[in-house]
């Protein structure tokens, strides 16, 4: 069971519209993500990568194919069961953060723990720990509007982690951030990766995608390329790229 993929999709398809207007947003995708792996799905906007992410996290239903999450098939269960599964097994991170404006940082983080039925005290303790982990312990009582974009996304990541999900699904997590904030988020992902967290990131930005262990390129609903980025050494050093040699 140790080698069983955390996330698994088989022959996954998602259609929109009918007849002439039929669009195959996801068109026959097979994917396996191993525990502790960071996978990036890259492609231009409209290639179907966000739809794929929604399907993997149970936010959307496939037209055909199977989705397995932590060894359970999720495309056949009811809306309520999917919600419960999302609550426990999946942490979502969105481009637009999607924090509740009327809740403080710590209240946003404990949201999913409370939804999962944890006691308010336990949820609060966990939320404060997570904020500490993302470096925002001193911002716990702030409303999202009082936080910078990068801080908001870190709060959102803390929220995604609150129920110890088997996988964190991130949809353009740095799309709304400047370079410095992007680096903060990438550093956070890196530390999660080191701690063994499984991560799936979809992005159109090759720089974000390049930080993953494995990079999948998607176009028109299909996977067109897959590159393992770890292991292989680059022929030239960074110094050479900067013009310091040769």
């Amino acid at each position: 069971m140790a080698d069983a993929p955390v996330v698994c999709a088989r022959e996954l398809r998602r259609d929109y519209g009918k007849g002439e207007g039929l669009v195959r947003a996801v068109d026959g995708v097979d994917l396996e993500v191993a525990a502790g792996e960071t996978v990036a799905v890259m492609g231009p906007s409209g290639c179907g990568k966000s739809t794929l992410l929604h399907l993997l996290g149970g936010l959307d239903r496939p037209s055909a194919g199977e989705v397995w999450l932590a060894g359970r098939r999720i495309d056949t269960v009811g809306e309520k069961a999917v919600a419960r599964l999302r609550r426990g097994a999946v942490g979502f991170v969105f481009q637009a953060f999607h924090l509740m404006d009327e809740l403080t940082a710590v209240e946003n983080v404990e949201l999913s723990a409370l939804l999962a039925g944890r006691s308010p005290r336990a949820a609060r303790r966990r939320a404060l720990d997570l904020l500490e982990q993302v470096g925002l312990a001193d911002r716990a009582g702030f409303l999202p509007t009082a936080l910078s974009g990068g801080q908001r996304q870190r709060v959102a990541i803390a929220r995604a982690l609150s129920n110890e999900p088997v996988v964190v699904l991130a949809d353009e997590p740095t799309g709304n951030l400047d370079t410095a904030a992007t680096l903060d988020v990438l550093r956070l992902f890196e530390s999660l990766h080191e701690a063994g967290q499984t991560l799936v990131i979809v992005t159109h930005d090759s720089r974000i995608a390049a930080t993953a262990d494995r990079l999948i390129t998607m176009r028109d609903g299909r996977f067109v390329d897959e590159t393992r980025l770890t292991g292989g050494t680059t022929g030239r050093s960074l110094g050479a790229l900067a013009g310091l040699e040769g």
């Binding site: 990438l186 090759s206 995608a209 390049a210 930080t211 590159t227 980025l229 680059t234 022929g235 960074l238």
Partner: peptide, 11 residues
């Protein structure tokens, strides 16, 4: 792929 690996290193 080569460029992506370099990019990964740079990042």
């Amino acid at each position: 792929r080569e460029l992506l690996r370099r990019l990964r290193e740079a990042e």
